[in-house]
Design a protein around this nucleic acid. Structure first.
Lengths: 328, 328
DNA sequence: AACGCAATCACAAACGTTTGTGTATTTTAG
DNA sequence: CTAAAATACACAAACGTTTGTGATTGCGTT
C-alpha cells in the first residue's frame, strides 16, 4: 500500500539512490532539476519514510526513550517538558514508556522494548531499577542516565537533586523559623533518597543542638495517604510543631489530617514539602516547599545523552531552593 | 557489537532460519535438542532482537502509540493506565508522545514519527487535531481513535464522555439541590466539547424553567487560572449561588478566589466540577464532581484498536456519574 | 531391501533504505 | 580543441530478520 522510494524513483525516472539523497538533502549529489521531480513525485504518492528500513541500514535511531515510573506525585511532567525542549532543538523524537512502580517485570519489558529498538539514549525518570535488570541496561551499549533518583549503585550515572541538602535545608529552615520539635513524614527510608534526606534532617538537628526523636520520623512512600497516617500517628496533640513532608502530596495529607484534628496551619503546625509542583500553589494554605529544578533535570539529562560519552560532567546535582508560601 | 541471529546460528551450529524459529517459538519446526542449544547460545551472547529488522520484514509492529496533548489537568494518566493494562494482556508495547497543546507543528511531528514507524494503532488523547494534519492521519492506513474529546469532524472515530450529558447532569444536580442562579466556568466555548456542555447546561436550565443569563458563563481553557478569573468577574457579591466548573483545576480556582472574597463553600457558593480526578479528594472542601470513566476510556479504546476494523461498536460514550463530596 | 512419510533443518528471497563506488556527461582549463 | 576535473546519476551491497520451499535424515512398513 504505502509508497516506497522505488515507486518514487520510477515515477520520477531516476534511481532509488538519487531519491534517497534528495529526500535527505545530500545536496552535493543531485541537481535542482531532479530534486524538483523527486519531491513532486514524493508528495503525490504521499510518501512516508519507513523508519524500520532506515534504522536497519544506518544502525542508529533518532529517538530518545524516557522510562518513567508511575509516581505518586506528577513532577515527571516537568522533567519530560525539559526533555522535549532539547529534543525539539536537536530534531530528535521522544517516546515515553511506563515502568509501573517497583514492578520488576514492567521495568524489564520497558527496557527490552527500547533496547530492541536500539534507541539512541535512555532516560530513566524516578525508576528504582531492580538489580536483576541492571545487566540489561548496562550491556546494551546505549547511553543511559537516571533522573530524579539517587541510586544505591553509584556506578550508574544520574542527575538529581542533592537529597542530603534537601533534608538539611528543609529542617534548617524550620529551625530558623523557631521550631525545635520537627517531624519527618513519608520518608521512604528503604530508598537511598529517603535515607539521605533523613541524614540531612539529622545533621541539621544535630548542628543546632536539638535532640533527635526517632519516633518523629514516619516512613512512607511519598503518597498522600502516607501524610495522613503520619499525622494520625502524631495525634490530636502532636509532639512536633513542624514537619517536613517528602512530597507535596504527603504534605497535603498531613495538612488535611491536621485540620481534621482542629489544628491550624501554620500556627499549630508548620509544614514544608519537597518538590514544589503546582499543587503547592493551589491548596490553601499554600505550601512552602523545597522546590526542585525538574525542568532543568530534563534539559541537562538530554544534553548529557546527546554529548555522549562526554567526559564526566562534574555537577551531578540540579539546584534546589526554598520557596516561601503560607504553610510555615 | 550486538549479537545477531547469525552469530547464534554459528555458535549453535544451525542455520539462521532455525534460530529464528526457535526464538519465536514456532514449535512445529524444530527439535527440543536444537532448541536448547540455540537458547543457550542466545543467552550467552546476550542476544537482543533487532526490532527494525523484524518490522521491516514482517511489515507490522506490536506497538500502540498514544499521542497526548499536554493538558492542564492530568486525567490522561488514568487513560494511559487503561491502555497499558490492555496492552500488557495482549503483549503489546505502548509508546507515548507529547503533542503540545494546540501546537500544529508538534502534532504533525508526533504523527509523522508514529506513522513512519508504522505502529499498529494510534490513540489520540485529548488532542484537538488541526485540520491540516487530518490527511496525514487518515491516509496512513493505520487504525486510530480519538479519546476524551468530541470532534468537529464526526467522521473521525472517538470515544469520550457525552459532553451534553455532562453539562446537563451537572446543572440538573445543582438545580435539584435548590439552586437556580447557576454559572458555567472555563467553558472553552470554541471547542465542540465546550459547546456541547453549554448546550446541556442551557437545556437543563430551560427544562426547569430557569432563565439563562449569558453573562453567567465564562469562557476559558480548563485551567486553574480560568477559574480564578471567572470568580473575579463574578465579584464579591456573585450573581450566582452555584457554578459548574469544566475541570477540577478550574473548580479549585473558583473556590480559592471565592474564599479570597470571604465566601464560604458550599454555603455561599456551591461548586461542582467535571473530571473527578484525585484532586477532588485532596482539596478542602472536597469537590463534588461529574466523574468521567477515564480508565475505561483507555481500555475500550485499546480493545477497539485491537479488533480493528470491527463493525462500528455503537456506544461511543463512556459512562459518567456524579460523585457527591463537600462542595455543594 | 525398498519405499514412503514425518520430522528436522538449510537455502535464499524479501522487506525499504543508505551509501561506497563506478560511469556517463558536462564543464573548465590550458 | 583536448585533456582533466567536476557534476550528476545509477548499480549493487548491506543492514537483521522472517518465511516459503526444498533437501536430508531417520523411522516404520511392506
Amino acid at each position: 500500500m504505502a509508497a516506497t522510494i522505488k515507486d518514487i524513483a520510477k515515477k520520477a525516472g531516476v534511481s532509488p539512490a538519487t531519491v534517497s539523497r534528495v529526500l535527505s538533502n545530500q545536496t552535493a549529489f543531485y541537481s535542482e532539476k531532479t530534486a524538483k521531480k523527486v519531491k513532486k513525485a514524493a508528495k503525490e504518492l504521499g510518501y512516508q519514510r519507513n523508519t524500520a528500513a532506515v534504522e536497519l541500514v544506518t544502525q542508529r535511531s533518532k529517538v530518545i526513550a524516557a522510562i518513567v515510573s508511575s509516581t505518586q506525585t506528577n513532577f515527571s511532567d516537568q522533567i519530560i517538558d525539559g526533555i522535549q525542549q532539547v529534543a525539539n532543538q536537536n530534531n530528535l523524537n521522544v517516546i515515553i514508556l511506563y515502568a509501573g512502580e517497583k514492578d520488576t517485570q514492567m521495568q524489564r519489558k520497558a527496557l527490552e522494548t527500547v533496547i530492541e529498538r536500539s534507541v539512541m539514549g535512555i532516560l530513566l525518570i524516578a525508576v528504582d531499577l531492580d538489580p536483576s535488570n541492571e545487566g540489561l541496561l548496562t550491556s546494551a551499549n546505549i547511553p543511559y542516565l537516571f533522573l530524579s533518583i539517587t541510586l544505591k549503585n553509584r556506578e550508574l550515572p544520574f542527575i538529581t537533586s542533592d537529597d542530603f541538602q534537601i533534608g538539611y535545608q528543609a529542617t534548617h529552615y524550620l529551625i530558623q523559623k523557631g521550631h525545635s520539635r520537627i517531624g519527618l513524614v513519608a520518608a521512604d527510608l528503604e530508598s537511598v533518597t529517603g535515607h539521605l534526606r533523613l541524614e540531612g534532617y539529622n545533621q541539621a538537628m544535630h548542628d543546632h543542638g536539638l535532640v533527635i526523636h526517632p519516633e518523629w520520623v514516619c516512613d512512607g512512600d511519598f503518597a498522600y495517604e502516607d501524610g495522613v497516617v503520619a499525622m494520625k500517628q502524631y495525634g490530636h496533640n502532636p509532639p512536633v510543631t513542624a514537619v517536613v513532608a517528602s512530597s507535596d502530596l504527603a504534605a497535603i495529607g498531613v495538612m488535611n489530617q491536621a485540620q481534621e484534628f482542629g489544628l491550624k496551619i501554620p500556627d499549630d503546625l508548620a509544614v514544608i514539602s519537597v518538590d514544589g509542583t503546582k499543587l503547592c500553589q493551589i491548596v490553601r494554605p499554600q505550601i512552602t516547599s523545597v522546590t526542585q529544578a525538574f525542568f532543568e533535570m530534563g534539559v541537562r539529562g538530554m544534553n548529557r545523552l546527546i554529548n555522549w560519552p562526554a567526559a564526566d560532567e562534574k555537577p551531578l546535582y540540579t539546584p534546589i531552593k526554598i520557596v516561601e508560601r503560607q504553610s510555615v
